[in-house]
Design a protein around this nucleic acid. Structure first.
Lengths: 258, 258
DNA sequence: ATCATAGTCGTCTGCCTGACGATAAACAGC
DNA sequence: GCTGTTTATCGTCAGGCAGACGACTATGAT
């Protein structure tokens, strides 16, 4: 049976613009960094902001986020549906921000997404390095590496993007505890030491290499050895691993207190 | 300095309707139940759906969710900002669903919220019990109590609300592991046994009363004794507790395997 | 050759958990 | 009043895991 179905009365609800904003995180030089772009127009002209853009007609939210990610970084998104590709990043929905006053121009609801990527050569936003860069999240948020607030950030992000970035960083910090997501910050093949440095950078702590090694190699499905070794970190050659199939770590990695 | 700021060009982006949908969960008769309402109009006329509605002009997303919650249940929302009130429920944002085809009438983006409430007298949606009711989530989702899929649900929910409900239930199941959120299912004063039955209902498992008692009373800040006792469950009188200030449980409650 | 750097394997101790025995305090029925 | 049933609460014990840390290995730099 086909039911006659009138479209919504446009006067029955206020119109919204819907955007996706991206919190793209990576680990560079032992620090957790986020991708920010320089705004070219008002409001907040000249300020740094999170990359993002409008959701298109006939485009899903995750599709829009993946498109923006590719446009800004050249990365392909790893979604739970799509298998891992070469130059890929983890992408998941973070939260939605819809304060009526968050954009002074009109009512904009932004569906923020979180992307975790391995260290990349250099950001490209139209190829202009002045318009996009990786910044340590401590600088952007005005926090210590552990996440505790110190002072206000020197250069606050545009709009409510500081809040969004903070939520994304907090999600990443907690999620690597109980999932294998930290491998998303690593290249396809990596060593236990490189993975440990990811945890140390994201959490802002120092971990015992011996206990860490025991933990990650002893968790079934977390890491699979590739057979190769590398000395790119100096010192004794280390075994190379790939991320195993396991996504949930049970029992979880424990973040040291204080 | 005041910068001239043109409004967005309305032709630059497609118009969206933004709604909030609610996954309201409670524990009744040893089963995890969700609030569903009967749809009065096409599409999906006569089907059960999650409560929800349009976000109003000048209304924040969390405000809209709290308003819908009060309209449907009479509950007040406990947000991290607002302190606990008498007839309150926990409310948090769940996720946002924006598939272009999720509503056949037009492009609708729905910001789903999750509410956890103690057992209530009876739902009221305009006072008509035929239009709102509590249904066990196993029936709505076609799963066993543990969460494993069995068969398709007898009466699938409208739109993508089955997906949203499943995500909300999964969020609740995992969140009571590492937070004190299970107390949101309990009245202001409750016993250890009542709290244990919440965990058993949400997880669909049977827990050892002695180990559970040791765990929850031994976690600092989880429970504070009120001094009173009750025998409303029968048997030996049990101590009454209130939820303590702690929100994160460290170490977490462990959900039994299999 | 020596040192510095990183990786890997073991040991020990303390804490937490799961399994489960035992006791306590109410109520129902005889 | 006595007995059985129900629920709450306290204890005990063994196994597993994490933190602290010693010891050894394999590379490159000086």
């Amino acid at each position: 049976m086909i039911t006659l179905m009138p479209p919504y009365d446009p006067s029955a609800f206020p119109p919204f613009a819907v955007t996706v904003d991206l919190v793209v995180l990576t680990v560079r030089k032992h620090a957790l960094c986020a991708l920010v772009v320089r705004r070219g127009e008002a409001p907040f002209q000249g300020k740094w902001a999170l990359p993002g853009g409008f959701v298109r007609e006939n485009e899903d939210l995750s599709t829009a986020a993946a498109r923006e990610l590719t446009e800004e970084t050249g990365l392909c998104a790893h979604t739970p549906e799509a298998p891992a590709t070469a130059n890929g990043a983890h992408l998941e929905q973070l939260a939605t921000y819809g304060d009526p006053d968050r954009d002074p121009r009109m009512r904009v609801v932004s569906v923020a997404h979180l992307a975790l990527a391995p260290d990349l050569p250099a950001p490209r936003a139209g190829g202009d390095a002045r318009h996009a860069r990786w910044s340590p999240v401590e600088e952007l948020l005005g926090t210590t590496a552990g996440g505790r607030r110190t002072e206000l950030p020197a250069e606050p992000l545009a709009f409510d993007h500081g809040t969004i970035l903070g939520d994304g960083v907090e999600r990443a910090r907690s999620k690597i505890e109980y999932s294998s997501l930290a491998t998303a910050f690593c290249p396809p093949e990596f060593t236990v030491g490189e993975l440990r440095r990811v945890y140390e950078a994201v959490w802002g702590v120092v971990l015992d290499p011996r206990n860490f090694h025991r933990k990650v190699t002893g968790t079934p499905g977390f890491l699979v050895p590739t057979g190769g070794t590398t000395t790119r970190q100096g010192g004794r050659p280390a075994q190379l691993f790939r991320a195993g199939g396991a996504t949930l770590l049970n029992p979880p990695m424990l973040r040291p207190e204080v």
